[in-house]
Amino acid sequence: MYLFIINSRSGGGAGLRTWHTIQALLEKRAAAYEALLTHSADSAESQVLQTLARREDWRAAIVVGGDGTIHSVLGALRRSGVPLGVIPAGSGNDTARGFSIPLAPEAALDHALQERCIEADLLNAAGVLTLTAVASGFDAQVAVNVNASRYKRLCNAIGAGRLAYIIGVLHTLMTFKPCRVSVTCDGKEQAYAQAWLVSVCNLPSYGGGLLICPQAESGDGLLDVCVVHGVSRGQLLRLFPTVVKGRHTKLPYVTMLRGRSVAVHFAQPRHAIGDGEALGTAPLAVACEPGALRVLSPLAAASAVAAGAAGSCLTGG
């Protein structure tokens, strides 16, 4: 039995439209499933936990939605051990990209029903679990501004989620002021004057495909960190096109770090987000939880070949 978790509001209504497509495909394939419609991230975890507790033969919990919907059920899936599947229907869909899940609904469903898993790490920031990245500073402020904007809804309606982020960058650039930050990675502290952002990543991208930490791997037990500091507004604006291809990592005002735990303390209150969802403005302490989640992913096929395995829901990735 598959549990489908549908956020009808994801991607400006794309979640519900995508679910109608998936539902028709499931009926054609005579697949056994149950659908759970969620409307609030605050209640999604408890809804999923209650549903999963009703039976023991769940093959997977498959989210039809975006990164925020996935974020809301991570705690339930970690506790239950049920694998996560993804049918992308959000604005950014960076979780899908990070696990090589197709953006087309039917192709994503095909891969999910193959039931091949890899183990993935989770990020734990003061008890809040995150799968893609915990970002603080400028890009977190961009996300806060975008989520509160009218242009996000318009961009979602025309299938241009990344455009909303680009507009948000220009919007935020006019008002954001950098400040000093202390970053402690595996106990080693480094300070940066005039820091714009600190991103702690588990997957390579966020913001709709921006490769903030292109070397990040979901199952290596490590956090990848990007710090942007000591740069003018004009230089920061010119930096963003390089992020699309992940070419910013060698620039003199970009520092890349890697470790199992990271603490971030800005000299002034700065917003933080996890999977695009608000985490407040307090200093951050982020730890890696290795292999805490199983994810249905096309990447498992390559893992199976490398391991010489043929079973479903493989461990290791």
Rank of each mutant, 00 (worst) to 15 (best):
E106C: 05
A302Y: 13
A112K: 05
Q194R: 14
A148H: 12
Q23L: 10
T249G: 07
T242V: 06
F4V: 09
K188I: 15
A309Q: 14
I273P: 01
P290Q: 15
V262Y: 00
A112L: 01
W196C: 01
R17A: 15
S149F: 09
C117K: 06
V198Y: 10
T38A: 11
D67Y: 00
D67L: 02
W58N: 10
A143T: 08
C117T: 04
N147F: 03
D275M: 02
G276K: 00
S312F: 13
G208S: 05
V243C: 02
Y206Q: 07
P83E: 01
A307N: 08
D67V: 07
C201R: 00
S199K: 04
K188R: 14
G85Y: 03
L103Y: 10
A304C: 03
S136Y: 03
G75P: 05
C201V: 11
N147W: 03
S72R: 07
I273E: 13
I87K: 01
M174V: 14
A31T: 15
T132S: 15
A108D: 01
P214Y: 07
H248T: 00
K250S: 05
H248E: 06
D94E: 03
A272K: 05
S199D: 00
G187N: 08
G92W: 01
R180W: 09
L131P: 01
R79D: 15
